[in-house]
Simulated assay, not measured.
Amino acid sequence: MGFPSPAMDYIENRLTPESICGINSNSLIIETSSGFAVVERGSKPKTGDYVLVSWLGHNYFARPAGRALITEDGEAIEGEALDDVEVIGVVTWLVNRALDDEAPVM
């Protein structure tokens, strides 16, 4: 009862990882050694994108380069070895842990 508060015009939505990273039903959140990676399963990878792939029973982060995939450690997956690779999705966000940082910024 009464009139609405003028302060209602200045209320903002709370920031959440879902709203910042655009997480939806096609997204995967993968824990990494330095934090988390958000992987979009519905996106088609392009040259230069960071992708999550499954190869020989392990998951790897890699970048497509022509007809090859270059993993984080510099190994190239190419030729017939690509037959065993399954591209899971494109990495859209990398979120680093703040608590484990040895050089925090204030």
Rank of each mutant, 00 (worst) to 15 (best):
L52W: 01
S43N: 10
P45C: 08
D100Y: 14
I88F: 09
K46N: 13
N59D: 13
E86G: 10
V87Q: 00
A68S: 10
R67H: 15
A62R: 01
A68N: 06
R63P: 03
W93E: 07
L82D: 10
V53P: 00
G48I: 06
T71K: 05
G48M: 10
K44L: 14
D100H: 15
W55A: 08
E86S: 14
G48Q: 11
A62Q: 05
W93T: 11
R97H: 13
F61K: 04
E80A: 11
N59R: 14
T92F: 01
V95Q: 08
G89W: 00
D101H: 08
E80M: 11
R67Q: 15
W55H: 10
D101F: 08
D100Q: 15
K44M: 09
D49P: 00
V87D: 01
L69G: 01
I77F: 03
V51H: 00
V53L: 09
L69M: 06
S54F: 13
K46W: 08
G89Y: 00
G66P: 05
D73Q: 11
D73S: 13
V91L: 07
K46E: 13
F61R: 01
A81Q: 13
G57K: 02
A81Y: 05
V53Q: 02
R41H: 05
F61Q: 02
F61N: 06
E75L: 12
L94C: 08
G48E: 07
G57S: 05
A65F: 11
K44A: 14
R41T: 07
W55Y: 14
N96Y: 07
E80L: 11
A62P: 01
L82P: 01
R97A: 09
E72S: 08
V85H: 01
L99E: 15
L56Y: 12
D101K: 13
V91Y: 01
T47L: 15
V90C: 02
W93L: 05
R63G: 04
V53S: 01
L56T: 14
D84V: 12
L82M: 12
G48C: 10
G89D: 03
G89V: 00
V51Y: 00
Y50C: 15
G74D: 05
N96V: 07
V90N: 03
D100A: 15
L52V: 07
V90A: 04
D73G: 10
Y60S: 03
D49R: 04
L82R: 00
I70M: 07
A65V: 15
T92W: 03
L52Y: 00
P45V: 10
P45Y: 05
